[in-house]
């Protein structure tokens, strides 16, 4: 019972923190729309062309803009020692990582969903495609949160090379984008592709707490 209370406490804190950082979320969304504009300016305003490639563009830009603020995943809690304090009060690093991933998913990635219908209007996508986009983004963003946790914890002690974190997220997000964008031509294979995506999400939900916790332990030992 006490344990569940602690978990809720952590969620509440994350919610408050993301509420105070709401500007950050909105600037990511702003970045997303600005990059859509830039894409459209570069490609021209041919309606047919935009409709065919719109989905791919939206997905890749969603990916890019949600990787922008991943660096902050653990940085603050690590630098001011909250991670150690939470660990000392009986939470393993794996649990902390899992809660962080879930709260990042709920409080940062899910609010991003509101921008998808707006972006779809800009590209004249059909309702079916918007629906697909929303469904795949919900699953894909869970994977992105896992990847973000891994790359952020990997780069806690990285003082020199800031772009490597983003590179790692993009590298492992290749399968997500293949299956998510492929879902539109799937037709009857719709559910199997969704299942593949959920499978990938579960794999990363399994790997990332272990990997991130190892990285965090390493970082804490070596500061």
């Amino acid at each position: 019972m006490i344990f569940i209370k602690k978990i809720f406490l952590l969620f509440r804190r994350e919610l408050k923190l993301s509420y105070t950082n709401i500007v950050d979320l909105f600037s990511n969304i702003l970045f997303f729309f600005l990059s859509i504009f830039i894409f459209v300016f570069a490609l021209g305003t041919d309606e047919q062309l935009l409709r065919t490639i719109g989905l791919g563009i939206i997905w890749s830009l969603l990916l890019l803009s949600s990787t922008l603020s991943l660096r902050k995943f653990y940085e603050e809690d690590f630098n001011n020692g909250v991670l150690i304090i939470m660990h000392m009060r009986g939470m393993s690093y794996e649990l902390i990582v899992l809660l962080k991933i879930l709260s990042h998913f709920l409080f940062v990635q899910v609010p991003f969903l509101i921008s998808i219908p707006l972006a779809s209007i800009l590209f004249n996508l059909s309702m079916y495609e918007v629906y697909n986009l929303m469904v795949t983004f919900v699953i894909g963003s869970l994977i992105l949160s896992c990847l973000g946790s891994m790359s952020a914890s990997m780069n806690l002690l990285n003082k020199a090379n800031f772009s490597i974190g983003g590179i790692i997220v993009l590298l492992f997000s290749i399968p997500i984008i293949i299956f998510s964008v492929g879902i539109n031509e799937a037709g009857s294979d719709f559910m199997s592709l969704i299942n593949i995506l959920i499978g990938i999400a579960l794999i990363f939900l399994g790997i990332s707490p272990w990997a991130s916790a190892t990285f965090i332990r390493l970082a804490i030992k070596n500061t």
Binding site: R13, E76, N80, G81, R89
Partner: peptide
């Protein structure tokens, strides 16, 4: 270090520690 989160209020931080321990 300062364990308190810079973006939260004093009472929020205290409640967090209280619940944590």
């Amino acid at each position: 270090h300062n364990t308190s989160s810079r973006k939260l209020t004093v009472i929020d931080n205290i409640n967090f520690w209280k619940g944590l321990s």
